[in-house]
Design a binder for these strands. Sequence first.
DNA 1: GCGTGATTACTCGGATACAAGATGTCCGAGTTTGAGCGG
DNA 2: CCGCTCAAACTCGGACATCTTGTATCCGAGTAATCACGC
Lengths: 140, 140
Amino acid sequence: MKYSRATNYALHTMLYILAMPPEKIITVQQLAEMQEISPTYLSKILTKLVKFGLIESNTGANGGYKLSKSKNDISFLDVIYAIEGTTSLFQCGLEHARNNCAIQEVMMDAEGELIKYLSEKKLVDLVGNVNLSVLSSGSR
Amino acid sequence: MKYSRATNYALHTMLYILAMPPEKIITVQQLAEMQEISPTYLSKILTKLVKFGLIESNTGANGGYKLSKSKNDISFLDVIYAIEGTTSLFQCGLEHARNNCAIQEVMMDAEGELIKYLSEKKLVDLVGNVNLSVLSSGSR
DNA sequence: GCGTGATTACTCGGATACAAGATGTCCGAGTTTGAGCGG
DNA sequence: CCGCTCAAACTCGGACATCTTGTATCCGAGTAATCACGC
């Protein structure tokens, strides 16, 4: 039970994208460079974010990624769901004679607390902390 | 990011033990039979619960497991920590120049919400739902 | 200068490789109880 | 009836086997912009 490294990459990536001027397009290479991770792997993660509608992609030369329009209040939960999936953290697969599993219910409620908090936390609130200095040297 | 099946087994097992008369000793075989899982694997799980001080074990003939004395207000969190470990769900391993990772802080707070809820939920409150009919046929 | 084709710089997707963790199984060792047996 | 031995019923721990998932790489395909070239 741990959040995957991919989720961490995704959160940081979204934060970088949010910190940039809107409509500005950035490539996988640049995003990977800032986090010092593999571009090819980050590409897979970005694809998930696109599928979930958090960012948009432009193919071809001068292509890259930018924030999806109509999506500037992205929550932590949005990103986590995009990467980890939306299935619940706990499910009792055991046979329970008549009624539902009481343990399952408690765990669902606990997850509800987590979800509530994460859905209220918006990534944009952290933009002030972002350091984009790696980009300025790039000059495109 | 999911709770392991072992955690589910552990929670159910603890509930069974709590539902029984205090000081009553029950074996791995019986506990495994109730959940229709492998006794040898459940044994590993029970060992973790013992190490964490939630239950006690008696070796030898007529041995088995029983609730640890001075431990009747066991929370969900106790069991989860015993099985999954106590390390936090999220840790940002990336290099952050000056300050700590803001994302990490949010995630820690979110986990705090989860922990708070799970530590307040006591297993004993669910004892009413437990069905011990499988045991009665055993007759020891 | 203007269209056309080739090159370049990107994303996208599938296939693959590798590592780690979860899930089980197997077996041998230790421990306690109780039954059986001999005196 | 007493004490000894031995078998049975347990837990405990390590060593495996297997499966799934996460992490990462590689390559070929598609796409859009730009460059080069011929007219």
